[in-house]
Amino acid sequence: MYEFAYHRPSSLADAAKLILEAGDNGKLMAGGQTLIPTMKQRLASPGTVVDLGALKDLAGIKVEGNAVAIGATTTHAAVAASKDVQAKIKALAELAEGIGDRQVRHLGTIGGSIANNDPAADYPAAVLGLGATITTNQRKIAADEFFKGLFETALKPGEIITAVGFPVPEKAAYMKFRNPASRYAIVGVFVAKTAGGVRVAVTGAGQGGVFRVPDMEKALAGNFSAKAIEGVKVAATSLNADIHASAEYRAHLIGVMARRAVTAAG
């Protein structure tokens, strides 16, 4: 790992100032479970790392009316173990329990995951699938406006995620087909029936990261059953192809995982 300047600010304002000053050469770090391995492999070499670990106010889970607000530095383990999340959005607790391994879940955070927007990450599927709202130190961003492409988000320089607000759905489930070695999602599908309609979000498969499947959403709006989407095909043209799965296989898996998710949502 290359050398870097390390800061551990004690206020959000200081963190924003430090990361803005660092410019393109700066990286925010929450749990570090992606950033540190990436730096160890010298795939990233930030000159400045701003550690959000001392900002204790950024961690925590609150039920606010018909929504669950999860602080940006809340760990995957905390989300998985939360009685509130289990009661209100079981699919989200289960998704968190399926990220990485126990050691990763003890440190990795929801804010870190969605700010990184890895195309195989699980959380982006839940954020987009539930139509969550991302709160930053500057504004609120709708999930549909947040994910901009591979490892790209709507976040501006100096902008820090503080919380993610998830509307409580009527039904929801997440199903993923894991790579047997890495355990990352080859395809993951989050399906939710919410007050705002049915949403289907896919991770692991898209060349541009997480995306919605409007044809499935339309079919499920009228009839929320696995049968309703049996005939809906997703085109392979904009899907990833690699040594693990071809684009055509991923397209097929999206249908399979979506039907399983609808069935699991009940």
Binding site: Y6, R8, G32, Q33, I36, P37, K40, Q41, D51, G53, A77, D101, R102, Q103, V104, H106, L107
Partner: peptide, 29 residues
């Protein structure tokens, strides 16, 4: 492994199992 995958480095930090190869010493201050 040096790539954060194998778990041979697991220790407890404040009672939780973590990979000591994927945590800066300064983070554990």
């Amino acid at each position: 492994c040096d790539t954060s995958q194998c778990g041979a480095c697991v220790v407890h930090v404040d009672g939780k199992s973590v990979k000591a190869c994927t945590l800066l010493a300064v983070q554990a201050n």
